[in-house]
Computed example of a mutant assay.
Amino acid sequence: MEDRTTLGQIDTQLTDGIMTITFSHPAHNSLPGKLLAQLRDAIRQAGSNADCRVIVLKSGGDRTFCAGASFDELMAIQDFTEGKEFFLGFARVINALRECPKFVIGSVQGKTIGGGVGLAAATDYCLATTFAAVKLSELAIGIGPFVVGPAVARRIGQSAFQQLAINATEFQTAEWAREKGLFTAIFANTEELDAAVLKLAQQLAKSSPQAMRELKRISWEGTENWNELLDTRAAISGELVLSDFTRNAIAAFKNK
């Protein structure tokens, strides 16, 4: 039987100062640990590439941006160390986006769940289609959006984050996400989204790299402790994922 946790890929393309990073996985663009590590590395490399002026983060396919954590990999976790390390994968990607000296434009073409909401929230400017409903599903499987929480709350506010975190089985619409500030604008289809992302990226690629770097730095002021904070949050999730409740909930979901 094929091990789905080894599937997926990260593609990068640099054109006229715009680095497009695309992640994809056959299981609705879920993110196993190996793919998370590759995504973190791609973001870091783009940030240090002198030819890169701006980064676009997107996923493959049409109607799902990111399904969040890989359930196959969650079920395979045997101890606390493995559990914490898995959730640190998301923490490292969020911190890579935060620390990157280049602006990152998020392009969300479809539904996004759990860790995917965290990725969208950790970009600097996020555009989406009307199909980009959002859900923080972690509580429904006995965990909680602990690692992505700081990024999501920073973007949409503590009250809206709490709404998503507690109502873990219901999607909120892309329009709701736009009203709360997760998305700057939403578009009718992927073609319109791609055109808007390209227009903004081209504009930024012509802007002052030093000015953009300084603007990004001050935009993220107050998050300097996130390496330690997200490590602590990953430990909470790493312990909870071992519970019978979580294992049974994930198994029930996979058997639907």
Rank of each mutant, 00 (worst) to 15 (best):
Q109W: 01
I141C: 09
D72I: 04
Q9H: 14
T184K: 14
S59A: 14
R154W: 12
V147N: 11
I166Y: 06
E82L: 03
K58C: 14
R213W: 02
A69E: 13
A211Q: 12
K111P: 00
A128D: 05
F23K: 03
I236W: 08
A122L: 10
L193W: 04
D62N: 12
V147E: 11
A151L: 08
N227G: 02
P209M: 06
H28Y: 13
N95C: 13
T15M: 00
N255I: 03
L229N: 09
V152C: 04
F90W: 09
I55C: 09
F103C: 04
W220N: 11
V117Y: 07
K34P: 00
A133L: 00
M75T: 11
G181H: 09
M19R: 11
G60M: 05
V117E: 07
A76D: 14
I55G: 09
A160I: 04
S59Q: 08
G118A: 13
S159C: 00
Q162I: 00
R213A: 15
M212S: 13
D79G: 08
A27L: 02
A188Y: 01
I21P: 03
F90Q: 10
P150I: 09
L215A: 13
I141W: 07
G110S: 06
T12L: 07
G60A: 12
V147G: 10
T173I: 06
W176F: 13
P101S: 06
A252V: 02
A185S: 15
K206S: 13
A132V: 01
A235S: 14
T15K: 11
I77Y: 09
F131N: 10
N29A: 04
P26L: 04
S159Q: 11
F183N: 05
T64E: 04
A37L: 11
E224I: 00
D72E: 14
R44I: 13
R213M: 14
R178N: 07
T20H: 02
V104D: 01
A133P: 00
T130L: 01
R92E: 12
E82F: 01
S159E: 15
I166Q: 08
I94M: 11
G83M: 02
M212V: 00
A42P: 05
K58E: 15
V152Y: 04
A177N: 07
L200R: 15
P32D: 01
G114P: 02
H25A: 11
D11I: 02
V148S: 15
A177H: 07
A235Y: 01
K84I: 02
G83W: 05
A121E: 05
R92D: 13
L7V: 01
A235I: 01
A151R: 06
L88F: 07
N225M: 01
F245L: 12
I218P: 00
A151K: 07
V54G: 09
Q210G: 00
I250E: 06
T6I: 11
I43C: 03
E99L: 12
